[in-house]
Design a protein around this nucleic acid. Structure first.
Length: 262
DNA sequence: CGCATTTGACCAGCGC
DNA sequence: GCGCTGGTCAAATGCG
């Protein structure tokens, strides 16, 4: 009888521990979900700024063209006129391993100008430049991932100075990357390039999906409105404060999270 | 026929 | 200087 009561008590304690763990995990999950949301919003703000910069660049280019040198159509000359910006980005895209094409549907039109087998990867690497070249200096390389042939790695060089689909004849969203196709993206500068394959499905990590917010410019504008920005920063502070209270989350880590969010 | 893609040749940078 | 490698060029080819 006594032994039976002791077993029941132990079961109850175990149940309570499990419940406590479950609750703790739920809270952690909630916090991480919020952090992911914040990162997405931060991304949207950056996108809005990028759009503004692109608009400025297009205006500058138009002014340059109007002021002369109309006959400089040679690509080599234009390459020096529009040097590629010092930025690169990578995205990982799911692809059928049986399908040999190295096509990444990203909303822009590309012209293939080369293909090469590289030393570190048996799959050929395809070289594309934006079909708006030489006006648009963007280039990309597409290659299957060494570890997983179902994944295409697209490396973008530079930034488009025009909208996606602005130069395509017949497409709307059909050439855009769907959120289910896109599995990761990393924006980097060319001299601090880190390999996004570290964040690929082979190593579990959060895949940042820019398409979650959609292309709606109205939404993007909302995020840079002052009231929204204040709420956004308040939320970050709340989140960081709650993290610092968590004994499993060190203050320095919380500070690092805060820095990354701002 | 015009345009896009393919593919071998060529070039530049880097390490030895 | 030489060889290796990644990136680009341009003639050949394919396709609508």
């Amino acid at each position: 009888m006594e032994a039976q009561m002791s077993t029941t008590s132990n079961d109850q304690k175990a149940m309570e521990t499990l419940q406590a763990n479950s609750e703790s995990l739920r809270k952690e999950n909630e916090t991480l979900r919020f952090m992911l949301g914040v990162m997405n919003r931060k991304c949207n703000i950056l996108q809005a700024r990028l759009q503004a910069r692109k608009a400025e660049q297009i205006m500058d280019i138009n002014l340059t063209h109007q002021s002369g040198s109309n006959n400089e159509t040679n690509y080599k000359k234009a390459r020096t006129q529009f040097p590629a910006p010092n930025s690169t980005s990578r995205i990982l895209v799911r692809a059928d391993s049986l399908d040999n094409s190295l096509i990444v549907k990203d909303g822009y039109q590309w012209r293939k100008y080369g293909q090469k087998v590289t030393k570190d990867n048996p799959s050929p690497r395809a070289y594309f430049r934006c079909s708006m070249a030489p006006g648009c200096p963007v280039k990309k390389k597409v290659q299957r991932c060494v570890e997983d042939k179902n994944v295409l790695v697209a490396t973008y060089d530079g930034e488009h100075n025009h909208d996606a689909n602005a130069n395509s004849h017949d497409v709307g969203d059909q050439y855009s990357l769907s959120s289910s196709d896109r599995i990761g993206v990393a924006m980097t500068s060319s001299n601090s390039m880190h390999d996004i394959s570290n964040h690929s499905p082979f190593r579990p990590a959060i895949a940042l999906d820019l398409s979650l917010s959609g292309p709606n410019k109205e939404n993007r504008r909302n995020y840079v409105e002052k009231d929204h920005q204040n709420n956004y920063y308040n939320k970050i502070e709340e989140c960081v404060a709650s993290l610092t209270k968590d004994p499993n989350f060190t203050a320095s880590l919380a500070a690092a999270v805060a820095r990354s969010m701002y």
